[in-house]
Write a protein that binds this DNA or RNA. Structure first.
Ligand SMILES: [Mn+2]
Ligand SMILES: [Mn+2]
Ligand SMILES: [Zn+2]
Ligand SMILES: [Zn+2]
Lengths: 138, 138
DNA sequence: ATTATTAATGCAACAATATTGCAATTATAT
DNA sequence: ATATAATTGCAATATTGTTGCATTAATAAT
């Protein structure tokens, strides 16, 4: 279970002021250890204005606290970056898993993405989304 | 260059009635050999109502003519399915490439996605999006 | 501690994107 | 040629995302 002081440090280390909304949102992501969309946050945090939640997700993404996870639904979900991410360098060589049963999306930080070589192309970044059944749903 | 009769057959084979809008949209995708978003179609086909274009993309996707390509922008793009896709079984073991320079998104149908094994998970489908520079932009 | 500076928040308005119902039109089967 | 069923365009509505600005709050400076 993550401590208040640790959450605060994550914000500070990414040049973000410490506010209630940011602390609550970051805590929610870390405690649940999964990815959430804007809609998820809007349902969870009715006490904050929609605009504030949008801006929280945007500042987190710009400053290297969250990264966006691709999807073919048109709904962007966000995951917590590894501690080494900064506004300057995002470093995400991990896969993402989406459960077809419960809908949960998570970062698979242990497993690295296999290296891809494409003749005639210059590969700069590789995203990988695996769909299937998560351990809880099997 | 694809023939009118071939385009018509693709629609018929997927249980879709042959209409001007569907023929024009399908032709546009195949002739350009790349993926497009709804916005792209709206700009290209001003003669058709926005709603008709939405419904064209939806029916194409439901009937196995197009597949959605994941993205972290919140904008869904569509690619032409291989000829074997049907409403019952989509079969997409190919990667997608997105050029950071010209923005073009394309299906890389020749290169297969490496097989992924995840302990404790059941893998059903793998999406892979490669970002970088396309041959034209290097 | 107090004050100054700067950033975040909430609200309202707005803009962009997507969906629905329905009458008119069109494609296909008979 | 006609009947049947699906598609289209339009208007209305719903959903999602953005902007400007006054108020409030966080941090830096004193
Ligand atoms: Mn991730
Ligand atoms: Mn494809
Ligand atoms: Zn699950
Ligand atoms: Zn390019």
């Amino acid at each position: 279970m993550i401590k208040y002081s640790e959450l605060k440090n994550i914000l500070k280390q990414h040049n973000l002021r410490v506010t209630d909304c940011r602390m609550d949102v970051l805590e929610y992501f870390i405690k649940n250890n999964q990815a959430f969309s804007f809609k998820n946050l809007e349902d969870e945090f009715e006490k904050y204005d929609r605009v504030t939640l949008y801006r929280t997700l945007n500042s987190f993404t710009e400053n290297g606290v969250f990264h966006k996870i691709p999807s073919d639904t048109g709904v962007v979900t966000y995951g917590v970056c590894s501690t080494t991410c900064s506004p300057q360098s995002h470093n995400h060589n991990h896969m993402h898993f989406q459960c077809n049963c419960c809908g949960k999306i998570e970062c698979l930080a242990e497993d690295q993405i296999p290296e891809i070589k494409l003749p005639h192309y210059e590969v700069m970044e590789v995203d990988m989304i695996i769909k299937g059944m998560c351990p809880q749903c099997i």
